[in-house]
């Protein structure tokens, strides 16, 4: 019979990983569960403890709500596919390993470190009335007077500018995920396909893209969810001209000090995120790939 000491040692050795992850689990539990519970309480309960849908109704009936939802989804629908295509193109370009591709890759990854607010301000400096773009167009003799890109009369222009800024800022994360994914694909598969006579396009379509599917999936999920929360870029460039859901959540608290409706917006964002993520995981499930 083993004595108690090794038994105890065994227990501690086995328990070690759990002790190591415990702080993270506790922290995450506190800082993710508490807000969810608190948000539900704020959104569905009055101060004196009555359950209510009042705040939900206030959110839905607000004049900004409809356009915020519409603009959020519209931006999502434009930006995300655009970014996916651009990032895939750059990733494939980098993957040809031309001379200088590494430097090029790091250059393209720079916006990853730039905050949404700073990015918004950068593009604001381009699109504003006396900004670089207007000056440039004037310099070319195309325009006489500055175009008001960022004015409430021209939501189209504002939207377009936001799309450009967001595309500039956040394509990098998709790119990095895809490049990492491409690097995991063994060159042998491509060479095998080549030996069997596959043309470059066929190799891309039949070998690279299917093997890249897990990376494409996670890039899509992460990007979609981050795009849903688009906030500072929009505020920096258009204020509240183009309302978005995260912006409304911010304003409802910042301007009206109403944490209840703000929480309702936050919950709505959470629900949309969860639905979209679930949808992606459900419908884009990669076939089991064993290496």
């Amino acid at each position: 019979m083993p004595c108690t000491r090794p038994l105890r040692a065994l227990a501690s050795e086995k328990a070690l990983p759990y002790w190591l992850i415990l702080p993270t689990i506790v922290y995450v539990a506190v800082f993710f569960l508490v807000p969810v519970v608190q948000a539900l309480l704020l959104a569905f309960r009055t101060q004196d403890g009555q359950w209510t849908t009042r705040f939900l109704m206030r959110m839905v009936q607000d004049i900004q709500f409809g356009s915020a939802l519409r603009f959020t989804l519209l931006l999502l629908a434009i930006v995300v596919p655009l970014q996916l295509v651009t990032a895939l193109f750059i990733a494939l370009l980098v993957n040809t390993r031309f001379r200088g591709s590494r430097t090029f890759l790091y250059m393209c990854a720079i916006p990853l470190g730039i905050s949404d607010l700073a990015a918004g301000l950068i593009w604001f400096s381009l699109f504003t009335q006396h900004g670089y773009i207007n000056s440039f167009l004037y310099g070319l003799g195309i325009i006489e007077r500055p175009i008001f890109f960022l004015s409430a009369q021209n939501t189209g222009w504002v939207l377009g500018s936001i799309v450009l800024a967001e595309h500039w800022r956040a394509t990098a994360i998709v790119l990095v995920i895809l490049v990492a994914g491409l690097q995991m694909i063994s060159r042998d598969y491509l060479e095998a396909a080549e030996v069997f006579g596959a043309r470059p396009w066929q190799r891309l379509w039949h070998v690279t893209l299917p093997l890249l599917k897990p990376s494409l999936q996670s890039a899509l999920i992460i990007r979609t969810i981050l795009a849903l929360q688009m906030f500072a870029v929009v505020v920096a460039m258009g204020g509240r001209m183009v309302p978005v859901l995260a912006g409304e959540a911010y304003y409802w608290y910042y301007l009206y000090r109403n944490a209840n409706v703000a929480s309702a917006y936050a919950l709505l964002l959470m629900v949309i995120s969860a639905l979209l993520a679930w949808g992606y995981l459900r419908f884009l499930r990669p076939r089991e790939v064993h290496s």
């Binding site: 993270t24 995450v28 800082f31 993710f32 508490v34 807000p35 969810v36 519970v37 608190q38 948000a39 309480l41 704020l42 999920i221 992460i222 969810i225 849903l228 929360q229 906030f231 995260a246 959540a249 911010y250 608290y253 944490a259 703000a262 929480s263 917006y265 936050a266 919950l267 964002l269 959470m270 995120s273 969860a274 993520a277």
Partner: peptide, 21 residues
Amino acid sequence: IGILMTRMFPTSLLAIPLIVT
């Protein structure tokens, strides 16, 4: 996976309810 999932948590949902807390 759980850790990865937290990356999908909206910042607004993290921040706004915590005002009260």
